[in-house]
Simulated scan of single mutants.
Amino acid sequence: MIRKAKLPEIPEILELTRACGKEMASRGIYQWNEFYPSRTVLESDVDREELYILKDSEVLLGVIALTTIMDAEYEQVAWLTPNQDNLYVHRLAIAPNYQGQGYAQKLMTFAEDFARKGNFKSIRLDTFSQNPRNQKFYEQRGYSRLGNVYFPKQSAFPFYCYELVL
Rank of each mutant, 00 (worst) to 15 (best):
P96Q: 05
W79P: 06
M24N: 06
F157R: 07
Y103A: 00
E73A: 15
F120G: 01
L146R: 07
F110V: 07
E163P: 06
L125P: 00
M24Q: 08
S44F: 04
V89M: 04
P158W: 05
Y88F: 12
W79M: 10
I64V: 03
K136W: 13
A95G: 10
S57Y: 07
T68L: 09
M1L: 09
E50G: 00
N131F: 04
L66R: 00
R124W: 06
A95T: 12
G118P: 03
V41L: 15
N83I: 13
I64L: 07
E75S: 14
S155N: 09
Q154A: 15
S26V: 10
P96E: 12
C161L: 01
I10T: 11
P132S: 04
E58K: 06
R39H: 13
E9G: 04
I10K: 09
P11A: 01
Y52F: 15
R39Y: 10
W32L: 02
N119E: 14
E9K: 01
M70H: 09
Y30T: 07
E73N: 08
P82L: 05
T81S: 14
D56V: 15
F35P: 09
Y103E: 00
P152A: 07
S122R: 03
F137Q: 02
Q101C: 11
P8H: 11
A72V: 14
K117E: 14
K4Y: 10
A95W: 04
A65G: 05
F159Y: 10
I123K: 06
A65Q: 08
R133T: 13
N119V: 09
L80D: 11
K106A: 12
T40G: 12
L125F: 05
D85C: 02
L87G: 04
G100H: 09
V77E: 00
I53C: 03
M108T: 06
W79D: 07
F128M: 02
S44W: 12
R141I: 10
L107W: 02
V149Y: 07
L51Y: 02
P8I: 06
K153F: 15
R141D: 02
D113R: 15
Y36R: 01
R141A: 14
I10F: 06
Q105D: 14
S38G: 10
K4V: 02
K153V: 14
A72Q: 15
A78C: 12
Y30A: 05
N97F: 13
C20T: 08
K121S: 11
L61R: 03
K153Y: 14
E12R: 13
I94A: 01
E49T: 08
N97V: 14
Q84L: 13
T67R: 01
S155M: 10
V77W: 02
Q135W: 08
I29L: 07
T127S: 10
F137I: 04
N33E: 09
A25V: 09
G147C: 10
G147E: 10
S57T: 14
M70C: 12
R133G: 12
P96S: 03
P11N: 13
I2A: 01
P11Y: 08
E43I: 06
N131R: 06
T81I: 07
E75Y: 11
N86L: 12
Y52H: 00
S129V: 11
Y52R: 01
I64K: 07
